[in-house]
Design a protein around this nucleic acid. Structure first.
Lengths: 100, 100
DNA sequence: TTAAATTTGACAAATTCTGACAAGTCAATA
DNA sequence: TATTGACTTGTCAGAATTTGTCAAATTTAA
């Protein structure tokens, strides 16, 4: 069974927006940002700020922690993409200091 | 049994240097960098560049991949330190795309 | 075709990173 | 206690990266 859960912030935001039949323009206006920027955020071309993630969560009535998790996961991916050969072991080392 | 393995690059570099009885000054000179910068790298106040890590591995006759792994782990730690609450789950998500 | 929605590319402003320098501390020892 | 050598610290300017905006281009829907 594959629920096809989205695992990056942009896709998730687009999903939330489309499920609520909202336009990019409307979302952007609400956050007082350029529509172009919101478009880039959804497509992963630009990163949202933490503040923007919080506001988006509120606006979409979505779980803020979930969105922040995806937001951080995106950042981690960007970081490890530089060095995929050693990414796996580096993650293991890094995770030692974050045993939730 | 705790072998007390070092898990960040700075400590590892210092360990390598001291085991070979070298001075910061000597290491720095070999990489043509300021002693102060090398000091900061060992103490984790500055990040080494990938190039510098490679040169240090060569200079110390150490395993380059191991050092690069620690170097990347440092970067990941810096990234997740911003959001420790969700770090664990974010790492799980990010790691899905890097099944070594 | 038209109009609205979204995407794209280019740019300047803002932010972060980097290396260099000078001055500082600390420990050993003459 | 003065000197010397090893290392550390703080600051700064230039470099590099990131950010948001604008205008133009493309896509979509009617």
């Amino acid at each position: 069974m594959n629920t096809n859960k989205v695992n990056n912030l942009g896709q998730k935001l687009r999903e939330l927006r489309e499920k609520q039949s909202l336009l990019l323009r409307q979302v952007a206006a609400h956050l007082e940002m350029d529509t172009a920027l919101m478009s880039k955020i959804e497509r992963g071309e630009r990163k949202a700020s933490k503040q923007q993630v919080s506001e988006l969560a509120k606006f979409f009535h979505a779980n803020e922690e979930e969105l922040l998790t995806l937001w951080l996961a995106d950042k981690i991916e960007t970081t490890i993409a530089e060095e995929p050969q050693v990414a796996y072991n580096a993650m293991k080392i890094a995770s030692k200091k974050f045993k939730q």
